[in-house]
Design a protein around this nucleic acid. Structure first.
Length: 834
RNA sequence: GGGUGGUUAGCUCAGUUGGUUAGAGCGCCGGUCUCACAUACCGGAGGUCGGCGGUUCGAAUCCGCCACCGCCCACCA
């Protein structure tokens, strides 16, 4: 048996313990096992990611569940892995390349660039997996996956080809979100909204008198837009067909400002009459809505007026002085030119949300381009159905609505990215005909005409390779106060302290707010609890002997306190099992906390000391009960605090199960539940508490013994006090507790217990009678108030008639008990002459 | 604008289907280095449960309105 230090030092044991788990292979799942499987599938973290607080929280919660299920005998599998994080990783390498060598990826070429990325990933990647070990996650590391592994890539291609064959993947020309800095398209999810204080510009378009054909401008129409720089891509203006203000302009022609391009005025019901001027410019290549409008009107071209860097294109439609300008520079210049020409009517402040790249925060440019898409509706339908039929459930339930709403408004998913780092799209274009060959492996020639083929340059969205993602992102909704670094916490307080604190503090479905400047305060609960458990363990290990404790407990020798702790233990097992099953991890954490600290450490261990140290008989029974309760506690606590419990488990003499991580979950034993013992021990606790309170009140020196006399309110109380007389005397520092019903009057401190029993502590000169009167009178007033409340309830016929019988009975019981207390108090006051 | 969650002790939060004397941790006050633990022990103070109204015998809990705070969605040019 190892000698344990008085203070728990997590850093001294955690690494070794984790290695022991790995060496023993306890995290490995046997897929051929007949046991019920329990698998957690989560979106993998980025290969280059560093563990942040959100990871720390989510992965801890998952680990608690998976360890619990593993101990319950299910075949628990946690598949760890990382994804290649296309944009993020490529950006990192590109930045380094630019800063170190002043080169771009194009300078290197695709192949050499990819070599660099692999180098980077091999050097720095996978850190997060190490960090998951540090917080104790019990992943099956033999199955670690990376989304660019050969086998995995094959599977990704297969999914692509299959979905294409089913018509669920198609190539189309659409307006997508384009990041001009990353030079790639983005999905709806990757282009996030940010609020912006912007402007709404009112721009005059010159009306052309078509019939006269002389181009004279006598009239304007005014269009409101936030993006004047897109106007060279306008194909028409539209107003609402029922908007009378514009009827006269039906089929009129306007001239795009600063250019000579002429466009018609048309109608569309999409137009919001109250917004702006009621007249909308339609730019199909640079706005997704406009694309739809133009599409429904039909017959329009879709002029793209910016290049991939969002600079104004060198195109006849674009005025010469604007060509090559960045879109925002162009906007400023356009506004100046319009103003000069008298065509900028007005500028209003306008705040709205704009999409930006989730990686580099660059404002996204809607842009017409050829991309691959996944049809989401056919995929969303079954998911919706599963939810609506109750086959898919959410904890907490309200997330179901979010999920439903999300699925209902989902649009087709753009899955091609103009990057190099990722799964290259398995599509080959013919150089002779327009056939596209989609197949797992490179075809020798075009399926259509036998011509030479060339593979698509683009790669797939990283999320496509974590295919489950669109339907799995809602699994956990959760964040931990920003700025908390889990690893710093683990280093300072230990993994168990981190885990316990966040599990106990994180109720299902709510976020946690933690103060990064007060890590000591925040994580004290976990650290202190670990230390408490450690010391409970030290005491028990030092006293239960070397395997001499009997395996079975002889019921005949059990004392009241033994029966009490055994009963409490059963209830705790039942409660925690239930709470973990219902994902109420915080309740489970608090439950075991109070059992270990309050019941076991503060009461049972204190009670049992005389037996342990040989000053009382029954040492074997005490040791057996201690061991039983302690083992159960370690098992119950293991999912939440795996390291310290494993260490203590290993230190137990004669341990049969090699590792706690692989041990079984405790099972409550009905015969050990003992309501009578719980009631009686509670009486003992209240008596000890009452005497302690008196001592504190009168400043009795901690070491000084007092005498005390108790008048039990019932034979049950008497039996309880009798059974634990020595415990009461020892814990309350009473030299002789008498309960013979003798004289309890006199000058001293008086207490009335909840069950009506009274206590008298003669303190002689130390007693300030006036003060004692005041205290007891206060007590009496409190009781009177409570009694008045319960009386008015019971006097209310409606209550007595309508409330359930047991509720009424409970109120009667209260009244009885409070009356007893009141009478006892009143008697005390009389004695003191108050 | 639509939806949704929240508002409980100084701080961070529990409070499960309406019936407790409304709880925990930290912090605070007083006392102890008592032979497992001062990361501890013992005792204690502190809350009109955001506001108003309603349902009910009974509301922190259910309903309505209001006030703040948060998240999601649409952000219509």
């Amino acid at each position: 048996m190892t000698k344990l230090a008085p203070q728990y030092d997590p850093s001294a044991i955690e690494t070794a313990i984790y290695r022991r788990w790995e060496d023993a292979g306890v995290f490995g799942a046997d897929v051929r096992s007949e046991r019920e499987p329990y698998v957690i599938v989560i979106p993998p973290p980025n290969v280059t990611a560093v563990l942040h607080s959100g990871h720390g929280l989510n992965n801890t919660l998952q680990d608690v569940l998976i360890r619990f299920e593993r101990m319950r005998g299910r075949e628990a599998l946690w598949l760890p892995g990382t994804d290649h994080a296309g944009i993020a990783t490529q950006n990192m390498v590109e930045r380094a390349l630019r800063e170190d060598e002043g080169k771009t990826r194009q300078d290197l070429g695709r192949e050499a660039f990819l070599e660099r990325v692999w180098e980077h990933v091999n050097r720095t990647g996978g850190t997060i997996l190490e960090q998951l070990r540090a917080i104790g996650c019990s992943c099956d590391w033999s199955r670690t996956r990376f989304t660019l592994d050969e086998k995995y890539s094959l599977a990704v291609r297969r999914v692509f080809v299959d979905l294409h064959e089913q018509g669920l993947i198609y190539r189309g020309q659409r307006v997508i979100h384009w990041c001009p800095r990353c030079r790639t398209s983005l999905s709806d999810e990757e282009a996030e909204f940010v609020d912006r204080d912007d402007h709404l510009y009112y721009i005059r378009y010159r009306l052309i008198d078509g019939e006269k054909g002389n181009g004279d401008s006598t009239n304007w129409v005014t269009v409101a837009t936030t993006r004047p720089e897109t106007m060279f891509g306008d194909v028409c203006l539209v107003y609402h067909p029922e908007d009378e203000r514009f009827q006269e302009f039906h089929n009129a022609t306007v001239e795009i400002p600063l250019s000579e391009v002429r466009r018609p005025i048309r109608t569309s019901t999409v137009v919001e009459r109250d917004f702006g001027t009621g007249l909308l410019k339609v730019t199909p290549a640079h706005d997704a809505n406009d694309f739809d409008i133009a599409d429904s009107l039909g017959g329009f071209e879709r002029p793209v007026t910016m290049d991939e860097d969002a600079r104004m294109l060198d195109d006849p439609r674009v005025p010469e002085e604007l060509r090559g300008l960045d879109r925002f520079e162009a906007r400023e210049k356009i506004l100046k030119l319009l103003d000069t020409a008298g065509q900028l009517e007005r500028v209003d402040p306008y705040s709205h949300a704009v999409r930006q790249c989730y990686r580099c925060q660059t404002i996204v440019e809607p842009r017409l381009s050829d991309q691959w898409f996944v049809k989401m509706r056919p995929l969303a339908e079954p998911a919706l159905k599963a939810y609506r039929e109750g086959r898919l459930r959410f904890v907490p339930e309200r997330w179901g609505k979010v999920y439903e709403h999300w699925l209902m408004q989902i649009r087709d998913w753009n899955i091609s990215r103009q990057l190099w780092w990722g799964h290259r799209i398995p599509a080959w274009y013919c150089e002779q005909c327009d056939h596209i060959t989609v197949t797992m492996d490179e075809p020798a020639s075009c399926e259509g005409c036998g011509g030479t083929v060339r593979q698509d340059e683009d790669v797939l969205d990283t999320w496509f390779s974590s295919w489950l993602w669109p339907f799995a992102t809602f699994a956990f909704s959760k964040s931990l106060g920003n700025g908390i670094d889990p690893l710093e916490v683990v280093e300072r307080y230990g993994s168990d302290a981190f885990r316990f604190t966040i599990v106990a503090g994180a109720a299902a479905g709510t976020d946690m707010i933690m103060d990064r400047n007060d890590l000591d305060g925040t994580f004290a609960a976990g650290r202190n609890f670990a230390n408490k458990l450690w010391n409970v363990g030290r005491l028990i290990l030092a006293n239960i002997g070397n395997g001499s404790a009997p395996d079975t407990i002889d019921p005949a020798h059990l004392e009241l306190a033994d029966r009490w702790i055994l009963s409490r233990c059963q209830r705790t097992i039942t409660a925690i099992t239930d709470e973990l099953q219902r994902f109420r991890l915080n309740d489970a954490a608090n439950e075991i906390y109070h059992f270990v600290w309050d019941d076991l450490a503060d009461w049972y261990i204190e009670q049992v000391k005389p037996r342990l140290y040989g000053s009382a008989d029954g040492g074997d029974t005490a040791r057996a009960v201690l061991r039983y309760v302690f083992e159960a506690s370690l098992r119950l606590l293991h999912p939440i605090m795996p390291f310290i419990t494993e260490q203590l488990w290993e230190s137990l003499p004669g341990q049969r199960d090699a590792l706690l991580a692989a041990a079984s979950w405790p099972c409550a034993s009905d015969p050990l539940e003992d309501e009578e013992a719980e009631h009686r021990f509670a009486r003992v606790q209240s008596l000890v508490g009452a005497v302690r309170a008196v001592r504190a009140e009168y400043g009795v020196a901690p070491g000084k013994m007092v005498t005390a006399r108790v008048q039990p309110a019932s034979t049950d109380a008497l039996e309880a006090f009798n059974a634990e007389q020595h415990t009461i005397e020892r814990l309350a520092k009473i030299e002789a507790l008498s309960m013979d019903g003798g004289e309890t009057d006199g000058i001293g401190a008086h207490q009335v217990l909840p069950d009506g029993s009274t206590v008298f502590v003669p303190l002689g000169d130390a007693i300030d009678v006036a003060k004692e009167c005041q205290r007891l009178t206060g007590e009496l007033q409190r009781l009177e108030k409570q009694l008045a409340g319960v009386k008015s309830k019971l006097d209310n016929e409606n209550f007595v008639n309508r409330a359930p019988g047991d509720v009424v009975e409970r109120e009667r019981e209260k009244e009885r008990s409070w009356q007893e207390q009141r009478e006892a108090l009143a008697a005390k006051l009389r004695v003191l002459g108050c």
